[in-house]
Design a protein around this nucleic acid. Structure first.
Lengths: 348, 348
DNA sequence: TGCGCTCACTCAAGCGCTTTAGCTCAGCAC
DNA sequence: GTGCTGAGCTAAAGCGCTTGAGTGAGCGCA
């Protein structure tokens, strides 16, 4: 008897039809809220379906042209940077919340690089696996929008800048430039004149945006000793770059890190070099998480609601799947949470 | 012209059949390596398929009884504990690696609790969405194995103890008891007699295993001042519990944390109370990540290869899907990485 | 009474694939 | 010549659902 697989049979519409004494088509109409059946029949069918625990087979649905009831999400980052990043799990959990409500599945895949990611989209499309995708980490010179256009796959770009060249794509983005501007403004007010920006991956669109915004703000204020350095987001590079910039003859008095991991690593590196935070150097993390309260001093951070970000993106995709128009949605500008790592610049 | 969706048509087997001048059945045989076609035809068909960029429609495949080519993964943890946890992303990336090679999709879902998770399995099963699932966070008194048995859904339990009651399930697990034993042994050798174990979620099977193992080890050595306290894995509880245990009249000289996040929070809490690590109290984290090297002192940690763990689990599931037998696989015992947070007990 | 119309429903085809049964023809033994 | 075999292929059904084209009853209206 052991090892026996009962494998209870799944009920189908045919079963419902039989029990309700109507045709399969009637069942289909009834369950999909289509006209063509009386309210009485509809109710009866619904009751039978419920009672049988019926659920539509996604395979059959997909095959008859209804789409796969699934959206795709590819993460293309080097494996080692996937580590201690709270952003993606939060984002995904927000996405889920919205998708689950519509019984849409989330097909998740990690890819080695963007090229790989494109291959995944092609495969998903050819295999009829997804109805749309959520694209993260948009890049400067990104091949993905063109591809998705070509495939006719509805998509929402998360974190991209508005893009007129692809009117089919929705975009959900945060105003990095604005955030950077107010950040620089705050630091400037505190007397900081030498600022280093330890940025993320060089090819990412938002990295680019932040770098440009910083340069613009510096220009406007006549600050000449302002720099951005790109990294791979890892604690290792955060530490290495911090060490390098602080060792210069006129070290920065404020450090802006593009994520929390590097900021934490950076604080440790600064301490190692004898710099005290915030007395000698102020630190701000672009991304708030528990991490920021795990080190002394607690890190001031730009906080955004990543879960909400995910919700927004998913909502846009759902609307796209419903035939809605592509849109560009801006989520709220991240808010600076002032903690103990920022203070007035040391008088030079 | 803008907004036009070209929506290139997907090639089907019919297209291949036409171009290759054979019937659809022949194409099916050829492409699935089934007997019934000559090598010459097989080659020709394959070439045409390749040239057309054909990929089988998963929907059609699933409908004709081949399974959905997808496995499911549900994460049922309170949203706020999802934050800074490196384990799951690593695990998933290991899983992916194996699944991708077989062109299996990973359907991912976050659920509120185990009950919710069960509902997801039922739905997936009824909707024909997945061929098997990976179950994480096994619990004492877990409803999931029974359910999966009932549904006849192949499954691999990740982190569970071997379970004879469900011969249909595969299990991939680490020997927590052994790891705990050697940990206690090490601490005992260093002179520690009062040990506090800040454990994870109380219902998880591995939490239970570790607690029991600690108690057993303490019993064997006649240590009476050894305790385990369960938490929700969050930095907040890690900090609170640390504070509480260190405030007692005879505070522990060694702290074992069930994850890296709590360990880091704990070190900060200890420092706040005037305890120096490792002089006054030693700290070990059960889970190694970049976090452990982001604080001073660097944390000693039990390190396991989570990516490999994922690979192993996925491999087992694939074998199950191929009709292989259910198995129980043990992954290597986590290894203690000694850094700066452990040392001899202060002479009392 | 008969015409046309609507409503509620049924029939049957079709989505892209697998699979079983069957068909054809060459090769061979007798 | 007949009969058998097996290799190589085709025809057709079926998976569970949707959908457009019927069908037939009931009704209003001239």
């Amino acid at each position: 008897m052991p090892g026996k697989r009962p494998a209870a049979r799944r009920p189908t519409m045919k079963d419902i039809a039989r029990r309700a004494g109507v045709s399969e088509s009637a069942v289909s109409f009834a369950l999909n809220d289509r006209p063509g059946v009386s309210e009485v029949t509809r109710d009866r069918v619904r009751r039978v379906a419920e009672q049988l625990g019926w659920r539509p087979s996604t395979a059959a649905r997909a095959l008859s042209g209804e789409g796969a009831a699934t959206v795709g999400f590819v993460l293309a980052r080097p494996a080692h940077t996937l580590g201690v990043d709270s952003f993606f799990l939060q984002l995904v959990s927000g996405i889920q919340e919205v998708l689950a409500r519509r019984h849409l599945g989330l097909l998740f895949q990690v890819a080695a690089d963007v090229e790989d990611e494109c291959a995944v989209y092609r495969r998903w499309w050819a295999e009829h696996r997804v109805d749309g995708v959520l694209v993260v980490d948009p890049r400067t010179d990104d091949p993905r929008p063109d591809l998705l256009d070509e495939l006719g796959l509805p998509a929402v770009v998360i974190g991209g800048a508005p893009d007129e060249r692809h009117p089919g794509l929705s975009t959900v983005w945060a105003d990095d430039a604005g955030a950077m501007a107010s950040l620089v403004d705050g630091l400037h007010t505190l007397g900081h004149r030498r600022i280093a920006h330890i940025a993320g991956l060089p090819d990412l669109a938002h990295t680019e945006r932040r770098i440009r915004a910083l340069r613009a703000e510096a220009g406007r204020r006549g600050l000449t000793e302002v720099q951005s350095v790109t990294t791979d987001y890892s604690d290792a590079e955060g530490e290495a770059v911090t060490r390098r910039v602080l060792r210069s003859s006129a070290p920065p008095t404020a450090l802006i890190y593009d994520n929390d991991v590097m900021a934490v690593a950076g604080v440790a590196a600064a301490a190692g070099l004898g710099f005290s935070v915030p007395a000698d150097v102020s630190v701000v993390a672009w991304e708030d998480s528990a991490l920021c309260r795990m080190v002394k001093p607690w890190l001031s951070a730009l906080s955004r609601d990543s879960v909400e970000f995910g919700r927004t993106a998913a909502t846009e995709l759902v609307s796209l799947l419903d035939g809605g128009p592509a849109r560009t949605v801006r989520v709220p500008v991240p808010r600076l949470i002032e903690r103990d790592s920022t203070g007035p610049a040391r008088a030079s």
